[in-house]
Amino acid sequence: MKNDIDTYLEDNQQSRFEKEEAYLRAKKKVDKIVGFYWHFAIYIVVNIFLIVMIYSKSGEPFWSFAVWSTPLFWGIGVGFHFLGVFGTDYLFGKDWEQRKIERYMNKEKDNRRWE
């Protein structure tokens, strides 16, 4: 009977450990997402300010490299931050390749209706 109780306690502890581990992984992921959103919000606010200030003070045309260089290079960094947080699955999805294959197969089938 003692062995039955020990086994139950170990399973319960294992279950609690797995739940806590899952919670910590989820919290870490949410923290990364929040960090990205803050980075993106700061990027928008600061670059609007910089674009207005550089354009008004430099005398350069609005679409010149001097006005848009900071948003461009910082935007590349924000893009890499996005990929680091969300990964490429966000853009293509896990079954993206399969959907594309089916779409092209259906398109080919539609083109061969006369056969």
Rank of each mutant, 00 (worst) to 15 (best):
K32E: 14
K32I: 10
K19I: 12
L24H: 07
Y55S: 04
E20S: 08
Y23W: 06
Y43H: 02
K28G: 08
L9A: 06
Q13P: 01
R25K: 10
R25T: 09
N47A: 03
I42E: 03
I44Q: 01
S58A: 10
I44G: 03
I42V: 15
K57V: 07
N12Y: 08
R25N: 12
E18V: 02
K32N: 13
D11N: 04
K57A: 12
K19V: 10
Q13E: 12
K57Q: 11
H39Q: 11
V52Q: 07
Q13T: 06
I44C: 02
Y55Q: 02
K27V: 14
E60W: 06
F40C: 00
F49Q: 13
W38S: 08
V34L: 13
E18L: 06
E20C: 04
K28S: 08
V30E: 13
N47D: 12
R16G: 06
T7L: 15
I33M: 04
A22R: 15
L24P: 01
I54F: 07
I54E: 00
I44T: 06
I33R: 09
A22H: 08
D31A: 12
Q14I: 04
K29P: 11
D11C: 09
D31G: 09
Q13G: 10
T7H: 08
E21Q: 09
K57I: 07
I42S: 03
I33E: 06
G35V: 09
D31E: 12
